[in-house]
Amino acid sequence: MRWSRIRPVLALLVVLALLMTGCSSQQEGTPADTGSSGQAQQQVSITFWTAPNPTQEKFWREMAEAYMKEHPNVKIEVAPIPESPSSEAGILTALSSGTKLTASENIFVGFGAQLANNDAIVPLDTLPGFDELVQQRKMEGLIEGWRFPDGHIYIFPLYSNAMLYGWRMDILKELGYDQPPRTYSEVFELAEKLRATYKDKFLLARKVLIEPQNWWERWFDTFTLYYAASDGKPFLEGNQVVADEQAFTEVLRFYAELAKRGAILTRDVTDPFETGVAVWAPIGPWTLPYWQEKYPELKVGEQVVFTPPPGAGAGGPAGAGKTFAAATGGGCIPQSAGGGKKRAGDLP
């Protein structure tokens, strides 16, 4: 493959397509030639699942179409990961049912470790061209953070979603605030004033707080606050749990205090932050395209402002500006997935 001939807009797809072509070879037992030698080229079929949101699905479909135009022997079928109820569950269902799947994005390292322990994901560093790909992307330092304890790399990093918090400043101004609260005590004060003034409004509306099966939601409502309270201390170092217990306890007490004040709504409400039922919410990068389509009247810097997580200390978070970022990547699924230590369907 001649990288110099690939247009910049295709670069990201080429990164993953190169890996997926290797994955397809792993599945079908024969090498794939996507070069331009003029010789007959093997037909390569790739099924690629994207993160289940319209923005990424649209992006990958466009990239796949452009790539296939330049490589007619490669057929890429792009589809969103079926959430049942999560992306991880969708992939596990595919593995246990024998659904055709070559590769998927939106795999985080914890889930990747479960797949690796069950021989349900390909070690990418064993595929031809992997080292060259890392060098082309200038990722020699970054990629080491994705190396698993067994020495292999199973997930190719694609993006990192840093989380912030949104505040409905239009409503806060009605309560006399010129800026959002920065500490837990200031948040408690706002919650009491809000509930005393508006019986139909809450600080936070988040039903998933009482749905423990949706474990991944803790990334967005608990880990965010933890990283601010702990000054960015990680949960794990290698195989050791090194989390700051005091910081995590402070986060749990924070939610308990809000619940005592009746400031958290835990029943189903459609878009509570956008409709003004709640004035505070965790915000990810995927939120803005949704607002542009559904709530164009919400303007950042006017009705809404973003801040890092609040903190427990009187002067603000110990780790000012530190938050959780959901880093995920792409991985390849072997045809024999599920035949390792446990069946794929038995994964937790």
Rank of each mutant, 00 (worst) to 15 (best):
A247T: 06
P334Q: 13
T21S: 14
L347S: 05
I153T: 11
A32R: 04
G345Y: 11
L10N: 08
T21C: 15
A120M: 02
A318D: 05
I107W: 02
N161D: 15
Y227W: 10
G301A: 12
W49R: 15
F306H: 11
T197N: 04
S25C: 03
T183K: 03
T224A: 09
G151N: 09
E217T: 10
A327R: 15
Y295M: 01
P317R: 03
V208M: 09
R5I: 05
P149V: 10
W215R: 06
I283N: 00
M169I: 03
F306W: 13
Q39P: 01
E140M: 04
C23G: 12
P52F: 00
G262P: 13
A66V: 02
I171T: 14
L92F: 00
Y67N: 02
L236C: 00
A120Y: 03
T21Y: 03
F188R: 04
V187D: 01
W146Q: 01
Q240I: 12
Y290F: 11
A314K: 15
T224W: 00
A337P: 04
T323A: 07
P285Q: 02
L288A: 05
G90W: 02
Y255N: 10
T50C: 07
V304C: 08
G311R: 00
A40R: 08
L252N: 13
T183N: 05
T102E: 11
A281M: 11
E250S: 09
A40V: 09
P52T: 06
G129T: 03
A17L: 14
A256D: 13
T50V: 09
N239V: 09
C332T: 08
K75V: 05
G35S: 14
A344M: 10
G29K: 05
T275G: 09
L133N: 00
Q335F: 01
W216E: 15
S230L: 11
E83Y: 00
K299V: 14
W146M: 01
L236K: 06
P317M: 10
L124H: 11
K193D: 03
A205E: 05
L92P: 00
E217L: 02
N53F: 14
V300I: 15
P289V: 06
K173M: 07
D221T: 01
G316D: 08
Y165T: 10
